[in-house]
Amino acid sequence: MSIILTQSFTGISIGAVLLLIALGLSLTFGQMGVINMAHGEFIMAGAYTVYLLQGPLSSAGMSLLVALPTAFLVAGAMGVLLEWLLIRRLYARPLDTLLVTWGVSLMLQQLARDLFGAPNVHTEIPGWLSGRVTVIGGDDPLTLTHARLFILALALAAVVALTLALRLTPLGRRIRAVVQHRDLAEASGIATARVDRITFFIGSGLAGLAGVALTLVGPIGPTMGTNVIIDAFLVVVVGGIGQLRGAVIAAFALGVLQAVMEYSTTVSVARVTVLIAIVAFLQWRPQGIYTLRTRSLA
């Protein structure tokens, strides 16, 4: 019993990281259909923001809090630049967007290597995040680190904020209108190009937030984006296009599955099993957990 509980808590904390890295993608890929392979490098940019801010701001806790909005702005600005320079010319060719943004990600990785060096760098974890909480005491205690809880809270806060923004604000209404029917939205007087750019800003900014969170659980390096981007895409694919709740469910389901498989086998076998499970799941629901009802034939 305790093992199941421990593994599901591990799974939820893996799922929280997955959710945070996939959230921005579910907006750009899920809502706009743009496959941005450079998303991983926006995450990397967020992580390096923390690293850079720890120089001038000596307190680790302070720099983390300052890094959250800064990383959002930095990654968001990179996203807007990418959208303005390349992606807006390629909306009609989704697969080419994938390849173009991969070329961009290659260059951004090299830029990180030239600016910060190829080896991983480390950041200080603030004191108030380095402890652990004991959830269940006894012989086989279940403890959670503060850092993992912080990531979980950050992920849930981001989901809530994004959901409310999409539901309640005029901007959110415009974004949803463009997602559902671009031509009709444009005919109703919505400047779709501007909405696209703002959506891309928010999605890329969320990648920056994910980067800040990742500094708490792992090293920062030029290849960190490549390591997480596939997982993030798989979460969005399983979750389904156009729905945030799909991404939430998919992230936690994949996290728990990964944790349980890792416990009973090895890490590498667990990765492969999770992937086979995803292929099997797509047999059952090819469009993911939640699908946007359309009259298209696919």
Binding site: F29, G33, I35, P94, L95, L98, I230, F233, L234, V237, T266, V267, S268, V269, R271, V272, L275, I278, V279, L282, P286, A298
Partner: peptide, 24 residues
């Protein structure tokens, strides 16, 4: 009828999984 970007990402994930399996 999994296609387009879905297919691309799936095929990429399979190559990654194979490499991870070999290393493990």
């Amino acid at each position: 009828r999994v296609r387009g970007a879905y297919f691309a990402i799936l095929s990429q994930a399979l190559a990654a999984a194979f490499a991870i399996l070999l290393i493990g």
